[in-house]
């Protein structure tokens, strides 16, 4: 005797095809809607910035400058400059020059502390500051940074 609760093979296959194509269709549409929410990555290029004469950074001190490529932290000792991204590697706040016995750069968000060379000396940052290529050319401080177009202009 045939079990009445069993689904006939033909109907089972029809349901399977319908279910699978429905799931595929909705999945494909869902993936496209997610893609719509992720704007394309803006194109990047390396740009050189002249920040002015050495004296814009006091000898033995440090400053944070705002550039179209982002914020850069520069410190100086004599003729030597060091530059880093001013974005704290912990959670993205902007560091400040705050020299003490144990640190040079300080992040006000979670009290992250870095030395002159960008090394973490205290607080929660997981990585050193990201170095930015810098040099002194003809008495001018020059840094090279990646420039991204604003995301809403891509």
């Amino acid at each position: 005797m045939e079990d009445a609760s069993r689904v006939p093979r033909r109907r089972f296959l029809a349901n399977l095809v319908l279910g699978a194509s429905g799931a595929l269709g909705i999945g494909a549409l869902g993936a496209r809607l997610l893609a719509f929410l992720s704007p394309p990555a803006p194109p990047e290029r390396v740009v050189e910035y002249a920040l002015g004469p050495l004296e814009v950074v006091p000898d033995g001190g440090g400053v944070v400058r705002d550039l179209p490529s982002g914020r850069v932290a520069i410190s100086r000792r004599g003729d030597r400059v060091q530059a880093f991204s001013a974005v704290c590697t912990h959670l993205g706040c902007i560091i400040q020059w705050q020299p003490t016995a144990d640190h040079a750069w300080f992040c006000p968000c979670h009290q992250g502390r870095y030395d002159r060379d960008g090394r973490v000396v205290g607080g929660p940052p997981p990585r050193p500051l990201v170095p930015v290529v810098s040099e002194v050319r003809d008495g001018q401080i020059v840094v090279r940074m990646v420039l991204r177009l604003p995301v809403d202009q891509v």
Partner: peptide
């Protein structure tokens, strides 16, 4: 360009905020 000196979230996020100051991320 400037992160203010005394940044803090709303009080109901204080526990994770303080926790993140104490331990590696």
């Amino acid at each position: 360009n400037v992160t203010p000196a005394h940044i803090r979230p709303e009080w109901y996020f204080f526990p994770p905020y303080r926790w993140l100051k104490l331990v590696p991320m």
